[in-house]
């Protein structure tokens, strides 16, 4: 019983990271109606980049974020501006196929540069620090830090979206690209900023995840799927819904892992399929207009 409770708390805290993967994905989908199949591979690439920066400068993973986040965001801007923007406007097929190809390219470049060996980011003593409630129930400092960071980032995104002129331009572009241009909005620039922001968010999540679990060049697709499941479970159109979706996914995986080792992903997928079947609009459906 305590074991299950412990696992569920772990799952809940991990769900915050899934929510960040999802927030990055849903930002792109919201602003330009594009599904980025390479999203997970970009998360993994961010983790590898953090690994590289840590090796080069001899710094810890949290400090490395100061370099990783801006560099990854700049990469996202360039990727959108000079590649992905050219796939938009002719239906769903071109962006899907180009990002599928991009995903394969990223995986194999990582494979060549870093080999197929698993990597992990070393964060030092904080990795094992925990708060114990009693002899059986304890909560790790690192997972709590991850979760709090996730909630803060999602709150900041919410503010940015609904309270800033930047977010106003995002929402206007999402509503009607042509009229947005009539407001002086350079949609190509806005799309590129959205991708930069999306990757900045997932770079943070990627580094946190890489402290917690092993990764290799082929971890990406699973992360994309987690993010996607969190979005659909939360209901498109609400960042807080996405957070709930991520937490549900984390808890479902934790419960699955309790039932049988090796079952957590199946449990997560089953929870996703069940929500899709019973609540196709997700738990927090977008208000129709």
């Amino acid at each position: 019983m305590i074991g299950t409770l412990n696992a569920m708390i772990q799952g809940l805290l991990l769900g915050g990271l899934y929510a960040l993967f999802a927030a990055g994905l849903s930002l792109i989908f919201g602003v330009m109606r594009m599904v980025n199949i390479a999203h997970g591979d970009l998360i993994v690439a961010s983790a590898y980049f953090a690994y590289f920066v840590m090796q080069m400068l001899g710094i810890g993973p949290f400090t490395s974020l100061l370099i990783v986040v801006p560099v990854v965001a700049a990469f996202g801007y360039a990727l959108q501006r000079w590649l992905l923007n050219y796939t938009l406007g002719a239906g769903d097929l071109p962006p899907l196929l180009v990002t599928i190809a991009l995903s394969i390219i990223l995986q194999n470049v990582l494979l060549i540069v870093f080999t197929a060996d698993v990597h992990r980011l070393q964060a030092g003593p904080i990795e094992i620090a925990s708060w114990a409630f009693n002899s059986e129930l304890s909560v790790g400092v690192l997972p709590v830090l991850q979760f709090v960071t996730s909630v803060i980032i999602i709150g900041a995104l919410q503010l940015l979206f609904y309270k800033s002129s930047f977010g106003r331009a995002f929402r206007a572009t999402s509503d009607d690209q042509q009229v947005a241009q009539l407001m002086g909005i350079e949609t190509r620039h806005i799309f590129s900023l959205a991708m930069a922001l999306s990757l900045a968010v997932v770079a943070v999540a990627g580094v946190f995840l890489a402290i917690r679990t092993n990764f290799n060049p082929f971890t990406g697709p699973l992360l994309l799927i987690f993010g996607f499941e969190a979005i659909v479970m939360g209901g498109l159109g609400s960042l807080w819904g996405t957070l709930v979706g991520g937490i549900l996914l984390g808890i479902a995986q934790a419960i699955g892992g309790q039932i049988q080792v090796g079952l957590p992903f199946v449990a997560g997928h089953v929870a996703f399929l069940a929500v899709l079947y019973f609540l196709p609009q997700g738990l927090f459906p977008k208000v129709s207009q």
Binding site: A169, R171, D175, V179, M183
Partner: peptide, 25 residues
């Protein structure tokens, strides 16, 4: 500036936000 046919306001923006975005330059 163009007032497009059929008005085409931004549905996810409030009235004030619709006006503000017109003046964002």
């Amino acid at each position: 500036a163009l007032v497009p046919e059929g008005r085409r306001l931004f549905p996810s923006l409030t009235v004030k936000e619709n006006l503000l975005i017109g003046g964002q330059l």
